[in-house]
Amino acid sequence: MKKLLYKFALLAALLVLMNWIYGKFFFKNDLLKHSDEVQLAWNIAHDSCAMVYTGESSNHTFAWADKDRRKISDFIFDQFPEMRCGDITKDASHAEVYYYLLKHIPDDSPVETVIVTMNLRSFGYNWIESNLETPIQKQLVLLKDNPPLVNRFKLAFKAYDMSTNAERAEHRVYHRNHDTLVFPYNFEYHTNYEWDYNTNRKGIMNADGTRNQEKTLLAITFIQQYAFQIHDDNPRVKDFDNIVELARQRGWNLIFNILAENTEQAQNLLGNDLVFLMRQNRDYLVNRYGNLENVTVVDNLEAVPDQYFIDRTFTTEHYTEAGRRSIGDNVAEAVKKYY
């Protein structure tokens, strides 16, 4: 037994040495190979940016008819011509991704202000358990706060959430069936699924009393995506809390940009009830983060009218030039208070 303990001690020492060798000679290449988005964070430092915008596809998606196809971040940066600015844009990402990418901006970089996209849909289980989540989790492993060799070990031995699409679908169904929706007034449906099912059953009707299948499908999509309530135990809330803590440690001015959702369309399709939930979720975020020191929450939830949303058959935060510009202006106004 003594011999075994001695060998374990030797093994532990070798692991420390391995960690050093791996960190020194291999880790950077592995990061670029398996978590290539880290390059975006390194570019911020490389370009000596003072202002950083982080977001997903909402930042860069444009309509073909747009004259100016630039990003939301560019419209913000336009108003600070004297500052060096950069963006970290990664499609389908969410707050956990932003947190780890922001963490990888080197400490000595001159970043002063960080704008982080707050996408309301990303708090819903349709997004939290989306099929894209497994590859995202895989990409995050090497970025986490462990010694490099430990992260590589976790990647090799699949020590991350690698649920299959079927398992994720099961989780989504579970939450849609079990997360109770609480309204301050009597509302006939108590879960996302109940609401979705009955809307589909009844259908959205045309003026002549016939079923409008297109509108019904869109209404269902809206329910599936927005009929939830954010609570303190929502994983995205934890991620945004982490971002707040990171900004505090680094001395950054932090701006949360609550993205515009198509509340007008939601109102047209489903009346006040769904919009009530969307506003309630927005209020939760404003109240949770809006009063913190050095944190500003920009409420763009209803800043973009229906006609400026690009996708017509699905709920996205993709805006035409006017929509992007309007969000950019609102965020820029908030940034100005720091300068």
Binding site: L10, L11, L14, L15, M18, I21, Y22, F26, D30, H34, K138, L149, R152, F153, L155, A156, K158, M162
Partner: peptide, 20 residues
């Protein structure tokens, strides 16, 4: 022997495929 263990363990962690 220990040199071999070192190389093998290091390669298992650092050089293994990340595909499932």
């Amino acid at each position: 022997r220990w040199a071999i263990y070192f190389v093998l363990i290091f390669m298992i962690i650092a050089c293994s495929s990340v595909n499932n």
